[in-house]
Design a binder for these strands. Structure first.
Length: 886
RNA sequence: GCGAGAGUGGCGGAACUGGCAGACGCGCGAGACUUAGGAUCUCGUGGGAAACCGUGGGGGUUCAAGUCCCCCCUCUCGCACCA
């Protein structure tokens, strides 16, 4: 080690100059550029790519800091690491910017990307920028179109007219996954239903596989798997036809789906969804027709949010028609009910008030008979006095009033009745999913054009593959008003039919931007491929993503779509993996405390007067000559509206990227929420400065150590050993914490302890050191820099260079610990009396039980507790403790 | 309502399979160096005068419980008429 390099440097670490230098170095030297290398094991580390909104926020910083530590760590572990970055560049905000500021979405997006790329660069992230992908470029989205065509060929992309979710604010259709509690996932506007013809991706064709292969993802958080399971919502049951008492033309029966066929003897009426096409023929010519039509019209008009609200009331109307319960042969009325969903099952149900709470409430409201067909084990249920439905599904209930099935348990009856129905031709087994096909049409401009044509003669005709990409026309007036903006671009709309050559009209909707993000991770494997979306050989090497990192908000949305498209692309023969992401880390939110004033609402930190101790006041009110206390609100997710955001750029300028990264990793484990703390950030900056000073002190010390004449002594050797022990224990701790679910917070704590320990150990020494100590300190210093490298890469490079070593430290092997040095020579053994700590003794690490207990028995404090009485029992836990029971 | 997760000092958080509760950081207190300190360094810091008491509350298992079992409370997130 040369002390010189340290001597020539400023004592204070200058992050602004140093960080820039190393960012330039990594770029110049292509430190993180990778190619396929079959001789080496690959590691694909990926963070969810950002929407280029303009500036990065703290959520990005956290996400990318986590990913970067993993990528850098795996690189040092010897893997061939693919760590790419790109831009989810299509989307509504660009169009809104166009409307508000008259700037073209493309211009706005490019500008944002340029700015954000610089910001990411300033974070010192180890990306292979040569693989950058931008979804709004024709080179990218042409492959969206290509997939669309392939899916169309296979019947996986189809067009249908149906009721769809419409966001009046975004003026576009939304997929089911994009509606949360009846509101638009992006802008929170209440979604309404519209009857439109739209393109769909047949994700339901993969429902079963999407569900089953979740079991093959042990590297995913349990709750994400459960959320997807629930979303897919598989139900196994039967379909049964209930014949109509009076047929209406071809309509002779109403088909229902149920999972509770065991209760079929209790079906005393039927309910249809208001949208059911059966309603109209059933009411035809009846006195009830007008009332039913009025009811259907009223319910259909309701917003989804209202219709599915928690406190919705059960409502319905009798159609006048009757069906026959095929099991009891009883004549039962057919109703229309607001809670029956047209999209699920057959849009019609058999209603069993005694054993279904919804039917029960409905029956009570309209005076429909309740028929008990399952009795509880106490035999206390009675249809006339039932207060709620008895929904027993296990073996506690037995069937009653069910002819030959009476006496069976519920599970048994389910099987037997299903078999009987099938044998008698009354019904058949059926499986239903909650999952709906993915509506991908969007009535917006800034997205991938759907490569379809409408020819008067030939109907729907796909664009020829050789004509791809269908480029998004540049000069389209984006006003945010009316239908799809592309419909106004005459030159775009008018095309000729590839089949007959006649005039054809182009599809003017664009694709959901979730299509773009459903396969970008494949594109990174071969970003320049121009014959195919992905080069099978390269994807074969890199896929699947070993570690994917992003927010929990995509638990169903993006992560379900990406799994679906991966399977489709596999079936197209381009890749062989079944799942895109082997391991998933869902990071927590970045939160911060909020403040508000009764007059001005949410307050910025700069709008506060006073202090924590004497209480905060609203500075805006103060300026207006009023005294208003500022109420400290809850700790909330950072957001502009709550005025509790922190600008990463400012943070990086003030403290440097290493500090910003370190704090994001230290304040909480990755999967938990991280509460922002300005003083905590300072603590991290202080730590890095402490490392810097420690290293210069060690360098100076080693210089002196060099000149020292060699002289050996037991004490010096022991001190050297102590340093080495600390070093190797730290290697183990940091490595284990990273390996064990990326516990970076405790890994960093171990580094802090290491630094504290080294300060202490070197402060205790006289300035002169013997060679053994010099060597031990040199090892400690090198180790510290290596262990720090994934977390604070700039500082680590700088220290590495200052130690006279050849960059880059990012490509050095991760240190290994010597097991012999990790074990201590002496152990501190706590002595307990009746399980309570009373004393401690020091023993050699290799002591036997007898030796430790014997030593403990002589302990003065213990003897006081024993007061001459022999203990009833002595418990010794190997290398842990001794417990005397008295 | 259903499902999942969480509740530990003044604060963020440690404690992997039951075995020294509070690592590490912040904050706070004392001191050192300083013209000065909001820089830096050192020491201290769960509560209590003490015996002792302490991981949301109450029971239990155990030599020993933050950790295991039962009951309850609170909070966060997800789903919410899916037949």
């Amino acid at each position: 080690m040369t002390g010189e390099s340290f001597a020539n440097m400023n004592r204070q670490y200058d992050h602004q100059t140093v960080e820039k230098q190393w960012q330039d170095y990594w770029e110049r030297e292509r430190t993180f550029t990778v190619t396929e290398d079959p001789s080496r094991q690959k590691y694909y580390c990926l963070e969810m790519f950002p929407y280029p909104s303009g500036r990065i926020h703290m959520g990005h910083v956290r996400n990318y800091a986590i990913g970067d530590v993993i990528a850098r760590y795996q690189l040092m572990r010897g893997f061939n690491v693919l760590h790419p970055m790109g831009w989810d560049a299509f989307g509504l905000p660009a169009e809104n910017a166009a409307i508000e500021r008259g700037v073209h979405p493309k211009v706005w997006t490019d500008e944002n990307i340029r700015y954000m790329r610089t910001q990411l660069r300033q974070m010192g992230l180890s990306y292979d920028w040569s693989r950058e992908v931008t979804t709004c470029e024709p080179e990218y989205y042409r492959w969206n179109q290509w997939f669309f065509l392939k899916m169309y060929e296979r019947g996986l992309a189809y067009r249908k007219r149906s009721a769809v979710n419409w966001c009046p604010s975004c003026e576009t259709v939304l997929a089911n996954e994009q509606v949360e509690n009846g509101r638009c996932w992006r802008c929170d506007t209440v979604v309404i239903q519209k009857e439109l013809e739209q393109w769909f991706f047949k994700i339901t064709a993969y429902a079963e596989e999407l569900l089953n292969s979740l079991d093959g993802l042990p590297g995913w958080p349990e709750r994400v798997r459960v959320m997807q399971q629930h979303w897919i919502g598989k139900s196994v049951g039967v379909e049964v036809d209930f014949p109509l008492v009076e047929s209406k033309g071809d309509l002779t029966a109403v088909r229902i789906f149920t999972t509770r066929q065991d209760t079929i003897f209790g079906a005393t009426f039927m309910s249809l969804a208001p949208e059911s096409p059966l309603v109209e023929p059933l009411i035809q010519g009846r006195s009830q027709a007008a009332a039913v039509q009025e009811f259907v019209a009223r319910v259909s008009r309701q917003e989804k949010a209202v219709r599915t609200a928690a406190d919705r009331e059960k409502e319905g109307v009798f159609t006048g028609a009757y069906a026959v319960n095929p099991f009891t042969k009883a004549r039962i009325p057919i109703w229309v009910a607001n809670f029956v969903l047209y999209e699920y099952g057959t849009g019609a149900i058999m209603a069993v008030p005694a054993h279904d709470q919804r039917d029960f409430e409905f029956a009570r409201q309209y005076g429909i008979p309740v028929r008990l067909v399952i009795q509880n084990s106490a035999g206390t249920l009675d249809a006339a006095h039932l207060e709620e439905a008895y929904e027993e599904e296990q073996t506690a209930g037995l069937l009653v009033n069910s002819e030959q099935f009476t006496g069976l348990s519920v599970p048994e009856a389910k099987l037997r009745i299903a078999a009987f129905a099938e044998k008698q031709g009354l019904g058949r087994p059926s499986v239903n999913y909650r999952l709906r096909d993915w509506g991908v049409s969007r009535q917006r401009y800034w997205g991938t054009p759907i490569p379809m044509l409408y020819c008067k003669a030939c109907g729907i005709v796909p664009v020829r593959e050789s004509d791809l990409p269908v480029e998004l026309p540049k000069d389209v007036p984006v006003t945010g008003k009316g239908a799809s903006p592309l419909a106004q671009a005459k030159e775009y709309v008018n095309a000729s039919c590839p089949k007959c050559g006649g005039g054809a009209r182009r599809e003017t909707d664009t694709m959901d931007t979730f299509v773009d993000s459903s396969w970008y991770f494949l594109r990174y494997c071969s970003p320049q491929a121009d014959k195919q979306p992905v080069d099978p050989a390269k994807a074969g090497y890199w896929m699947a993503v070993d570690q994917y990192i992003g927010g929990i908000e995509h638990a169903v949305l993006h992560l379900l779509y990406a799994r679906f498209l991966t399977k489709v692309i596999r079936d197209l023969g381009l890749i062989s993996v079944h799942e895109p992401f082997s391991n998933l880390l869902t990071q927590g939110m970045v939160t911060k405390e909020t403040y508000r004033c009764t007059i001005h609402g949410w307050l910025l930190p700069g709008e506060l007067a006073g202090s924590e101790k004497e209480g905060w006041r609203c500075a805006l009110c103060q300026a207006e000559g009023r005294q208003t206390p500022a109420e400290r609100g809850r700790v909330e997710k950072m957001s502009k509206s709550k005025k509790n955001t922190v600008d990463p750029e400012h943070l990086i300028e003030t403290y440097g990227a290493d500090t910003a990264r370190l704090f994001s990793l230290f304040a909480a484990p990755p999967e938990k929420d991280l509460e922002w703390s300005d003083t905590g950030v300072e603590g991290c900056a202080r730590f890095l400065n402490r490392v810097w000073r420690l290293m210069s002190e060690i360098a100076v010390r080693n210089e002196k150590g060099k000149m020292q004449k060699e002289h050996r002594g037991g004490a010096e050797k022991a001190r050297a050993l102590e340093i080495r022990r600390l070093t190797h224990r730290t290697i183990r701790k940091v490595t284990e914490d990273i390996e064990r679910e990326f516990q970076f917070n405790t890994a960093i704590a171990a580094l802090m302890e290491f630094v504290n320990g080294l300060y202490k150990l070197s402060a205790e020494r006289e300035p002169e050191m013997n060679p053994a100590e010099t060597a031990a300190l040199r090892e400690a210093a090198e180790t510290l820099v290596l262990l720090l490298a994934p977390f604070a890469p700039h500082l680590a490079e700088e220290l590495w260079k200052a130690m006279g070593k050849v960059p880059s430290v990012a490509r050095r092997p991760w240190p290994r610990y010597d097991p012999a040095l990790v074990a201590s020579e002496r152990l501190t053994i706590p002595i307990q009396v009746n399980g309570k700590l009373r004393s401690k003794i020091e023993v050699p690490a290799d002591s036997t039980e007898d030796q430790v207990v014997a030593l403990a028995r002589q302990d003065a404090k213990l003897l006081e507790w024993l007061q001459g009485r022999p203990p009833r029992k002595v418990i010794y836990v190997e290398k842990k403790l001794v417990n005397f029971v008295i």
